[in-house]
């Protein structure tokens, strides 16, 4: 179930409700009990309240820095090289079938 947009007020204090925490948990593929959600909502709100100093800044004229160094695309020579051994990699997987990772169904009813 998608949460309605209305549940996302642009609350300046950065307070997070239980419903918002539940929505974020769904995005993050995590599950919490209601009391855990309440605790998380309060803890995240406290961190975001601390971040009010950042939120309040007028930095519109400053470009963002996402990385310490200017990033350039690094490419190796286009030649065939050995990679990790398939069997060694698959040996670490929770479930394997015919040389591939096996997962539960991603579509439709479970068998």
């Amino acid at each position: 179930m998608l949460l309605e947009r209305a549940a996302y007020p642009s609350d300046v204090s950065g307070r997070i409700t239980r419903a918002e925490a539940a929505h974020v948990a769904r995005l993050a593929r995590l599950r919490f009990r209601d009391e855990e959600l309440d605790e998380l909502a309060a803890q995240l709100s406290a961190v975001l309240d601390h971040a009010a100093d950042v939120e309040a800044l007028d930095v519109t004229d400053i470009e963002p820095t996402s990385h310490p160094h200017p990033l350039v695309n690094v490419m190796r020579a286009d030649e065939v090289r050995a990679s990790l051994e398939r069997d060694e990699v698959l040996a670490q997987a929770p479930s394997v079938d015919s040389g591939q990772f096996r997962v539960p169904p991603i579509l439709g009813e479970a068998p």
Partner: peptide
């Protein structure tokens, strides 16, 4: 879990610019 939740929130629609986007600009400062 707390950090994943915080990060997912900071990157989520409607909050990206207010939090993560601003933090990146603070990094420039």
């Amino acid at each position: 879990k707390r950090r994943i939740m915080l990060g997912t929130y900071a990157l989520s629609a409607g909050y990206y610019d207010a939090f993560y986007g601003k933090a990146l600009r603070v990094r420039t400062l």
